[in-house]
Amino acid sequence: MNHDVDILLVEDNASDAEMTILALKKSNLANKLLHVKDGAAALDFIFAEGEFTGRKIEDKPRVILLDLKMPKVNGIEVLQKIRTDERTKRIPVVVLTSSKEDPDIHKCYELGVNSYVVKPVEFDEFQKAISNLGLYWMIVNQPPQ
């Protein structure tokens, strides 16, 4: 499959985004990565609306890395929208969050999240986690046809 975007990174925190991208780059996984800074932009991309009008919805990313706490539209809302739309509900979504204490973890699983990852504070571990994540979803996992 030829995708414009393999990884959609939805992250409002510029530092987290930069470090995530750096980590993926180190594993050569960041070639087709798109970074959007909030949930609204993410939905625009996924449903080819707003600035992404004209994009084909069928050109689905191989994985969406989704932060939960974001301004305007938060991660839960994004997840909900993706899962309730027949066209998008099979897209693998990995939730990245700062804390395992997040009260939304349960809700995420109910909404059919594929993975729920706590971002480690330590950089080495963070890099390892993101790298493993990228490798898994990009290479190991077989996406639905």
Partner: peptide
């Protein structure tokens, strides 16, 4: 607080390492 503190901390860690 603890939740939101982690992000800048991660950034400090990350940028220092970088």
């Amino acid at each position: 607080v603890s939740h939101d503190l982690r992000a800048p901390l991660r950034a400090i860690n990350g940028y220092t390492q970088m």
